[in-house]
């Protein structure tokens, strides 16, 4: 690179060229390692999944070209539809819940100062540092009728506690686990955005006679709206790929978590229990498509408020 720089060139116009060229090559070199990883572990698997999903493997027939048969099969498959419906329904409840918890916590922490506030901020964030596997496991223990406190407290009052992992209640059991696990992380993002607002804005509002609640709802919330959009997108992508928590709770949930509980669990079981890699790829690809579509629709709907892609 230094040789390029010292190479003498004639004419004013060419004088800038080697340096520009050097910068251009350097730019590519800086992104090269990422580009290799990106191609190898994102583009290639994506294309390969697309390719795999177009074939079908039968015991008698061998591998034959199936076209879009796997996709028609997937979207007509009651197992896939059931799982997809579950994660969609779950996102519709869990995302607003997480955002409300995170936003309220962040607004309160932005207002209150002192030791309690600092301590609370760390504690609320704490679950983020705990692997989802262990978060799910801990709540599974707390729900447990054999040694969990919920059952014990209920027994003390002579009532029967609901088993939060039963067929009818697992939706709520999981809702609690996920909210507990992620709200703190979202709280920190919102809190950081709140901290970066110039406090003279509040001063001006206060002089105009705005109450603390009005400042919170009319000034603070709109000013962190781009952080909220970011969180919504993350949370949407994460929830639609729901896997770890139900998978971990399955052994102690007495059959509430079926092998087709969520699309990801279904794809995993198809691939590793039944060795149907082609159909599993089609399921993965379909799920990816649904996620992409959902996020796309969402970003289109919120584009005016400013998103991470502006």
């Amino acid at each position: 690179m230094t040789q390029l720089q010292t190479a003498p060139r004639a004419g004013v116009r060419e004088q800038t060229t080697p340096r520009k060229k050097r910068k251009r090559i350097a730019g590519w070199l800086f992104i090269l390692p990422f580009l290799v990883v990106f191609l190898a572990f994102l583009v290639a698997p994506l294309l390969y999944a697309g390719y795999l999903s177009l074939w079908t493997k039968g015991l008698a027939t061998g591998t034959t070209f199936a076209g879009f048969d796997n996709y028609t099969r997937a979207f007509e498959d009651p197992s896939f539809r059931k799982g997809l419906w579950f994660v969609l329904r779950f996102s519709l409840v869990v995302i607003p819940l997480q955002i409300v918890v995170a936003l309220v916590a962040a607004l309160v922490l932005d207002e209150v100062t002192g030791r309690l506030a600092r301590f609370s901020r760390l504690v609320i964030f704490l679950p983020y540092a705990i692997p989802a596997v262990l978060g799910a496991l801990m709540w599974g223990f707390l729900y447990s009728p054999s040694f969990g406190p919920i059952e014990q407290i209920a027994t003390a009052f002579d009532v029967r506690a609901p088993f939060l992992l039963s067929q009818g209640n697992i939706f709520y059991g999981l809702l609690n686990v996920v909210t507990w696990q992620w709200s703190g992380y979202y709280m920190i993002i919102i809190y950081a955005a709140l901290r970066s607002i110039d406090s003279s804005v509040y001063e001006a509002a206060r002089i105009d006679g705005a109450s603390a609640r009005q400042i919170a709802l009319r000034i603070k919330v709109p000013m962190v709206s781009s952080a909220l959009v970011l969180i919504l997108i993350f949370s949407l992508i994460g929830t639609l790929q729901f896997f770890t928590e139900p998978q971990i709770l399955a052994p102690i949930a007495n059959g509430s978590v079926t092998p087709d509980f969520t699309p990801n669990i279904y794809a995993f079981n198809l691939a590793f229990r039944y060795a149907q890699f082609n159909y599993a790829s089609a399921i993965s690809f379909s799920l990816g498509f649904v996620v992409f579509l959902a996020v796309g629709i969402f970003m289109f709907a919120t584009r005016k408020k400013g998103s991470i892609f502006t």
Binding site: K23, I25, F38, P45, L52, L240, F243, N264, V295
Partner: peptide, 28 residues
């Protein structure tokens, strides 16, 4: 750095934020 193709590559990177990474696990 400003180089040709930068915006295109970066757009692909941003788009891939939306790709659910678990959907890639089985093909990977």
């Amino acid at each position: 750095f400003r180089f040709r193709g930068r915006n295109l590559v970066f757009a692909a990177v941003l788009g891939s934020v939306m790709v659910p990474l678990t959907a890639l696990v089985i093909p990977t």
